[in-house]
Each structure stands twice: as C-alpha cells, then as structure tokens.
Amino acid sequence: MAQVLPPLLDYEQSYPCPVCRQGQLDRLILMDAFSCNVCHHIFSVNLSQQSICLADRTPALGWRWARQRWRPLHHPDIDFPLGIWILCGGLTVLPPTILWVMHYIFPPLPDSSANSFPLLWIGVVGITHSLIALWILAEFYQLPLYLSWKFRLQS
C-alpha cells in the first residue's frame, strides 16, 4: 500500500527520513523540529523554504521537500548517479591497472623467491579497492541490507 505524502511541509504530517530512509520524521512536542523514529536524528524546520537541516551534525546537511521526496540543498535539481559510478569504476580499475603496468614494465627477476608477490599484491589491491567502491555505492543508494547492518553495529 503506497503512502500518500503531503504536498507541503507541515508540522502535523510525517515524512520519510532523508538520512536513514527507513524511519519517519514526526514533530517533536513543544519544538519546531522533527525527529526520526529509527536513526533518532533531530532536524530543524524552515516552513517558508520547505526545508529541513540536520541539527545534530556539523556541518549541517539540508534537504528541501519536493512534494514527493527530499532533495539535497547543496544540489537541489541535479541527481547525478553517473558520477558515483564513474568514481567507483575508476577506483576499482585504475590502481590495479597501474600496478600491472609497472609489473609488466619492470618484471621481477626470474630466479627471485618472491616472483609471484607482485601478482598477489595486484589481486589484494583490486579486491580492496572493489570493497571500497561497493561501500561508496551502498552509502549512495542507502541499500536496506547495508543500513540494517549499519544500525546494528551502531547500537
């Protein structure tokens, strides 16, 4: 069942949390602020600009309510996941490729005892950078399995 979201930001409504994307933002009693029921972040509200700012973090992150979902204040009209994919692809491919080129140009001595070490090192660098790229993608897309593990480790 789809949730009907209000068109304008209002203290009487609840909204999806832009940080954890799992919880709901509800008004804090006697305050002009929202709080998430899952990640427990506190958001200051600006009704005239239809925006919220994360009050318990420095530097403060902000989002504008776009009648159906939250849009970041620092780039309100640009949704650019292609840049994240290019960053992750470069981070995964470039370092092992540089190491392989150096191994190809300057191969180890044939009778050396550590003849296979450069190939092992290239593999370790490739796996490590792939894991870092997966972490960046999980943070960007806020994958549910990743978020559940993240919240379990934090509590």
Rank of each mutant, 00 (worst) to 15 (best):
P118S: 03
P96R: 03
A60P: 01
S51P: 04
S44D: 12
R64K: 14
Q142V: 11
P144D: 13
I132W: 11
R69K: 09
S35K: 08
R69N: 03
L73F: 01
D111E: 13
I132D: 04
W121H: 05
G123L: 11
L25S: 01
Q142R: 13
G126F: 02
S48R: 09
K150R: 15
P59Q: 03
P16D: 08
P59Y: 04
V4Q: 15
Y15D: 05
V93D: 00
L28I: 15
W70D: 07
I29G: 05
G23K: 05
Q68K: 08
K150E: 08
A2G: 10
H41Y: 09
L5S: 03
G90H: 08
P107V: 06
I132L: 15
I84Y: 08
C53I: 04
F140T: 12
Q3T: 12
D111I: 05
Q142A: 11
I42P: 00
G83K: 08
L119K: 07
L30D: 15
S48W: 00
D56F: 07
V19N: 04
W65Q: 05
T58V: 13
L120W: 10
D77E: 13
G83A: 14
G83V: 07
F140C: 09
P59R: 02
H74Q: 14
A138Q: 07
Y11K: 05
W65F: 05
P72C: 00
A133I: 09
L145A: 14
A55V: 00
Q68L: 06
V124N: 00
G62P: 02
S35I: 11
F34I: 02
W85F: 12
L47R: 09
L30H: 14
V93N: 01
S130H: 11
C36V: 06
W100S: 04
V19A: 10
P144G: 05
P144F: 08
P81N: 07
L134T: 07
Q50L: 01
V93S: 07
L30E: 15
L120R: 02
Q22G: 13
E12F: 00
I78G: 04
F151G: 05
V93P: 00
L131V: 12
N37S: 08
I42H: 08
V38D: 04
S112K: 13
Q13R: 11
M1N: 07
D56E: 06
W100H: 04
Q49N: 14
W63F: 15
T97M: 10
P96T: 10
S51L: 12
D56R: 06
N115C: 06
P59H: 03
Y11S: 07
G89L: 15
P108L: 08
I98T: 02
T128R: 00
L25D: 01
C88F: 06
Q68S: 12
T92I: 02
F106C: 06
L145Y: 10
H129C: 13
S14Y: 02
Q49A: 15
L99H: 03
F117W: 09
M31D: 07
C88R: 11
Q68G: 06
V19D: 10
I127F: 12
L147D: 02
L147P: 01
L94F: 09
F80D: 15
L99P: 03
C17W: 08
